[in-house]
Design a protein around this nucleic acid. Sequence first.
DNA 1: ACGGTTCTGTTGTATTTCCAACAAACGGAG
DNA 2: CTCCGTTTGTTGGAAATACAACAGAACCGT
Lengths: 228, 228
Amino acid sequence: MRDNLQVLKSSAVFDSVDAAHIDAMLCCLGARTQTFDRNDYVLRAGDSPESLGLLLDGGVLVVQEDFWGNRNIRGRITPGQVFAETFACVPGAVMDVSVVADESSVVLWLGVQRILRTCPAACAHHSRMIRNLLSELAQNNLRANEKLTHLSCRSTREKLLSYLSAEARRQGGAEFAIPFDRQQLADYLSVERSAMSAELSRMQREGLLSTRKNVFCLRPASPGAARK
Amino acid sequence: MRDNLQVLKSSAVFDSVDAAHIDAMLCCLGARTQTFDRNDYVLRAGDSPESLGLLLDGGVLVVQEDFWGNRNIRGRITPGQVFAETFACVPGAVMDVSVVADESSVVLWLGVQRILRTCPAACAHHSRMIRNLLSELAQNNLRANEKLTHLSCRSTREKLLSYLSAEARRQGGAEFAIPFDRQQLADYLSVERSAMSAELSRMQREGLLSTRKNVFCLRPASPGAARK
DNA sequence: ACGGTTCTGTTGTATTTCCAACAAACGGAG
DNA sequence: CTCCGTTTGTTGGAAATACAACAGAACCGT
């Protein structure tokens, strides 16, 4: 719990905010922490959160669920990242997604309206935080765009390649770990788990990639690879 | 062209900015207008725009295209709305989508970094505009979320119902016009145009809805409706 | 080591989508 | 009005996905 300050200092929303002032800011933002066990709901679809969540420890999934338990995973939040900021920034916005703890997690709630409503000149750091928040929203937009790119692919194979290429690019190498197990990956890409599993097998047989558990390694295209 | 000021005043990014100050702001933002014919590219994938676009007149489509001309429509921008703001807000961000004029259009370019970089206190309206921009980004996020909801549906019918319900909700009635023709709607939902057309026919036969051109009317569920 | 649970890959069948080609309806331009 | 290009709806065969059911592997705590 002592390294929470470390997480805060490295978090994008507190970027360029003097560490010495963070305590004062937290008080000003009405910050409070909350802990969750695995599979606990952090926020439910239908909520209108007034605070954004900053994950201090653990991991949470942003998911959309229908009545029959079908779920689409929007993304996974890791410590230092924020979530629900979009809904917290639009007063009255109703969440159409839920946030579920994927493991034991600690969340710091920040009353974003206290940043936005009061005059930014009141506190020198407010203006900085608003710009950080804006940057965070833009990043979130980019992530959503990326996911839209994956989902607009027509076939399971294309979706996999689109996602895996993006992940390789993001992590800067052909070998990388993904934050999902197979079922979660299928829910993220909106495909059938079994069909995806079969497709991954085919792709491995063709030499496009190799995978052990959640570690993938993309291979450069080999001209003599067998099709199908 | 004279009613451009009217568009600006009603635009969300200039919300609560005194009309008398807009002129001064435009100068400060390095604003300049540009006109486009139908099918002209306003921005191309690969660009790193330093300005956001505010549409003064006409209509533009945000699209993602691959090498073979397959395109996915991300959305349609109408006068008063902004586009490319996400990329303009993240210095160096490379666009993975293009913006194409769907009709003759007039765009006002606003140097967003001049809002963000300079001290907000320098101009009383800067702080207001930053918050407007933040709100705009949040709205954009909500739209992206909505589209993700549509795209995560598995079947053509589900996608159609998801989109049409959302549109009905947005426009506040069972009867509404959509901003797309059939091909554009198919590209927006990432489905086959012909399959979508067939599905729409089936849904009409079942009495779920009626459609003439781009006007749709959703009907309340009738218990005795024939399946398939 | 032992069960029990979860995760992953495989397979077969039913269903759906994709694709190409065509037909009908529509909307200007001359 | 006719011609012509565009848009929309229809159809049939090829291909891909959805679904269910199962088997082996990995993982857990006891």
